[in-house]
Design a protein around this nucleic acid. Sequence first.
DNA 1: CGCTTGAGTTAGAAGCTATAACTAAAATGA
DNA 2: TCATTTTAGTTATAGCTTCTAACTCAAGCG
Lengths: 216, 216
Amino acid sequence: MAAGAASPRERYRSQVRAEIKARAWEQIATAGASGLSLNAIAKELGMSGPALYRYFGGRDDLITELVRDAYRSLADTFRAAADAGSGLPGLARALRRWALEDPQRYFLVYGTPVPGYRAPDDTTAIAREIMAALLDVCAAEEPGTASPDALETHLADHHQWAGDHPAPPSVLRRALAVWTRLHGVLSLELAGHFTGMGFDPELLFTAEVEGLTGGR
Amino acid sequence: MAAGAASPRERYRSQVRAEIKARAWEQIATAGASGLSLNAIAKELGMSGPALYRYFGGRDDLITELVRDAYRSLADTFRAAADAGSGLPGLARALRRWALEDPQRYFLVYGTPVPGYRAPDDTTAIAREIMAALLDVCAAEEPGTASPDALETHLADHHQWAGDHPAPPSVLRRALAVWTRLHGVLSLELAGHFTGMGFDPELLFTAEVEGLTGGR
DNA sequence: CGCTTGAGTTAGAAGCTATAACTAAAATGA
DNA sequence: TCATTTTAGTTATAGCTTCTAACTCAAGCG
């Protein structure tokens, strides 16, 4: 059976689901995930509150799905940037563009965790896709000639997160550095911690990328 | 009038306020800021919901005060670490200890921002204290001999965030790098993004610190 | 054409924040 | 010492939320 050709009921259903998620994204963008209201979405769609429970198990289920979509979108962005061959600077640019496009979407992935909340299992698979794309880019860069330090020797035995990627410890280390540093500058910018400080966040970001690619 | 010697009523009042905040911290630690419930706090203290409005303007006011306290605590930690003379590694260790002590407290400062929310003005003053301590530590390190790059020349004219600190652009640049990189590794660790990846987060953290102090 | 499936409804329970009106006790001043 | 004022805490209530239950009605399908 082809998943694309669906019955009219299924077509309608998936269309309403998409509409609900679209409104949810709007709300999240303007009020954050904590401000997402099922009632408000239902009212916007011209139907009454409980109707949404035909489409989603509840508020948490909806948010979980949005988190999944955000992960998916980020993984696709990473994959595309890695395949574009524009190297680490290209990947970094793509990441920042993706983040600035919808900061709250970024925070849905990398923001404050809710203590009780457990992400669905498939998000860890997508997270591995993201790391795989990152490793591809890092593996294509100039190899570092420095002798391995404590972290690299540790990573030689603890690289399960890299799956079966054939990257040497130096590349693993580099990928982690890229990830954490880009997240560092970017998340602070997105959270508004640079506003009022006077400098241009983009310059700081590109400087961090240059520091990663070998400059300075 | 001494602020310490207060009337019995004021003593009682401030004690109840402290009790409320203590319960609020417990709730935040176990359920996150979004899970904080005034009703639950009141019930724990053996009084009924609306009684808390004698002590705080409302839920938002209480959270704002907790944010302020978190900022204050972090600034004190930074000041103490800077004055201890243990350099950048000491500062980094203090930061990580402080963060692991109560991850949600860290996220109250550096976590996902709520789009509408505006932090009270005095937090920006405390944020400047934090940067001042960081600048003190960075200024005491070995000066870099590299010629200034684009970011440093930019910072030479855009350093209002440094107040009247007499740090040269190279130190300003360094302070920003320290801040963003430590936040990068630390926030990902606290959010649980390293769990299941296999490596030891502490090694990654210390490696990042070593990369900052000149090793690597 | 009749039956089944399912989308959407209203009603209502349980929770939340927050306000209003009231009670009772403690501090204050003549 | 007694009357007045201040204030901590109460209950009642409005208005919001998520979510469940029971019901209606129309569309799809054999």
